[in-house]
Amino acid sequence: MNIIVTSLVVLGSIAIIAAVILFLVARKFAVYEDPLIDQVAEVLPGANCGGCGYAGCRAFAENCVKTGKLERDYCPVGGTDVMKRVAALLGVEAQASEPKVAVLLCNGSSACRPKLTTYTGVKKCSIAHTTYAGETGCKFGCIGFGDCQVACAFDALHIDPTTGLPVIDEDKCTACGACTKACPKLLLQLRKKGPKGRKVYVACKSQDKGAIAKKACANACIGCSKCVKECPFEAITVTNNVAYIDDTKCRLCRKCVAVCPTGAIHAVNFPVKKDENV
């Protein structure tokens, strides 16, 4: 009986003292945090992809709440819906933005772009790029070791083993932009998703002159400017031997696609025309 009482007293007093210490310490080191941060973080997708430019969703929320503005901050993953809810929490006007998606500006598949050398170092684009321009004759094209695939937090990018190029799953792509930063050749671009995902773009960044580009890759843009003349909306420009279609001006008429001699202009997600028999 005595033992039980003693142990109860001893253990009980230890518990009480510990509780008091814990309480005091918690009070002393308490950090005040705006509860709004939690609420904003709750609304965000929570993928911590860094697409907004902050270290993660919570850092984004902290910054929004601290500045109280949304002018520069935008969550590309959550898109307009999420930003509206964030704006409502902060009591400011939401920024509208069109949904975007990543596209690959290279169509030099392994079939049309022959390999001239074999790279045996570390299979990472970033490391290969600092030593060599690439295994093929095109120094602007995709290296194909899949740094973008590793960077993608949403499983939306995969290297196709037959073409050696990454394929973007547009349903999964959140336009966070991680892949655009991972690619040492800057071949991934965030473009307007377009109505029903339809878009037209030049899938090549080769600045080589026509003959050299063509020799290195059958699908290369040779800078012939046929598309520029064809475009009724002046959406296409050719600089440094490579054409570029401005997605804010393009009206998806696809006239350029028809005249491109190398097939470097891609039109995606359009319904197949019956008379084309593709």
Binding site: G121, V122, K124, S126, I127, T130
Partner: peptide
Amino acid sequence: RPLLDYIRYGKQ
């Protein structure tokens, strides 16, 4: 292991 490949890139 390609130690130097990683180190060189990291150094850069």
